[in-house]
Design a protein around this nucleic acid. Structure first.
Ligand SMILES: [Mn+2]
Ligand SMILES: [Mn+2]
Ligand SMILES: [Zn+2]
Ligand SMILES: [Zn+2]
Lengths: 179, 179
DNA sequence: GGAAATTTTGAAAATGAATTTCATTTTCCT
DNA sequence: AGGAAAATGAAATTCATTTTCAAAATTTCC
């Protein structure tokens, strides 16, 4: 049986923490208890998670760690290339662990909010081609597909609103406050 | 010479204003001087423009029209399907006129900020295929290519920062406040 | 035309995520 | 240990967006 090479993104948590420490030293930054706790939790949790999410998780065991530090540590991870920021349609900044060579795009379920990742070389090539034909040199792209996952079905709930008559006005369309 | 059919998105401003009036009547809403001015300016300007932009343009001639009304009128245009909201990487909400059948994606220049549109049937099909293979039913997607346009070149300015020594620390990396 | 009903308007306030400030604490180096 | 630099956390700030509310405008109905 041939040895299967680990996918690029699968390096262990301790290796990533090592990389972070290297980064810190290189920039004259300091290792702290808080950073260690936050980074560990972040890498362990994985996924696409907000600073707030991580903060809440950590708060349970460590009431002394503030949101600001979580926020700053996530930014630090981005600078050190161990995480990326993602902003999907809900306009919240999410973070996900990242390995150097890793690239993928996302499918987002409008029903349950689940996020599925995909990679498609053909699409990447097509993007490059399109850009080239418009005289652009791309350095990044954003590709997100929104819809309903298998479990959530076709999303037929919440059909189009109908206009009302004068005496029977349409329900006031209140915006759910979801920033 | 064969008569060239107008592209779908090219219907005239007055036709669009007609559609809006129909929409207003249908929902028991009212026509106002402000709405007319705002919609006219918006349709005339076109492009990918923020509420603030439109407001500033209009203010010059009509100091009595408030930002709130511009904001609400643009939302109204979205509801009536005469405009769409777009949020690119700078996290500002932009509006663009839209015709029913119209769909396109965007190339955004990181140098000059120019926005180029493109349409690519192959990409649309590929997106559907990818979603299907993950069991998703897509209802929308976001596809943006970021890079440098022909005029702005390869974007070689602002290379990666180098770490500094202890006594010669790296310049404090202040975030430009570009929300 | 004119009153009543309903919607619209604009200023100001509220919202909320993201970011900065600042006084204090911690880490790192010798 | 001692001193310099960085990190921390609470609070304040920022800033686009959205809501509130009292006054004004539009539409409907007589
Ligand atoms: Mn991901
Ligand atoms: Mn466009
Ligand atoms: Zn789902
Ligand atoms: Zn450019």
């Amino acid at each position: 049986m041939p040895k299967r090479r680990k996918p690029a993104g699968a390096r262990g948590i301790s290796e990533k923490k090592e990389l972070l420490n290297t980064f810190l030293k290189e920039w004259g930054l300091k290792s702290t208890r808080q950073r260690d706790i936050i980074v560990t939790e972040f890498l362990k949790t994985g996924g696409h998670i907000t600073a707030e999410d991580i903060y809440r998780k950590i708060s349970k065991k460590h009431q002394d760690i503030g949101f600001t530090t979580v926020y700053r540590t996530l930014k630090l991870l981005v600078k050190s290339r161990l995480a990326t920021e993602r902003v999907f349609a809900d306009n919240l900044t999410r973070y996900e662990p990242l390995s150097a060579e890793d690239h993928h795009d996302h499918l987002i379920c409008l029903g349950c909010g689940s996020i599925t990742e995909f990679e498609n070389a053909r699409m990447e090539r097509l993007q490059e081609k399109i850009a080239r034909e418009s005289g652009f040199n791309t350095v990044a792209h954003k590709m997100e597909l929104y819809g309903y996952c298998g479990r959530c079905g076709s999303g037929s709930r919440g059909g189009k609103k109908q206009p009302g008559t004068k005496k029977n006005a349409p329900a006031p369309q209140k915006n759910r406050n979801n920033r």
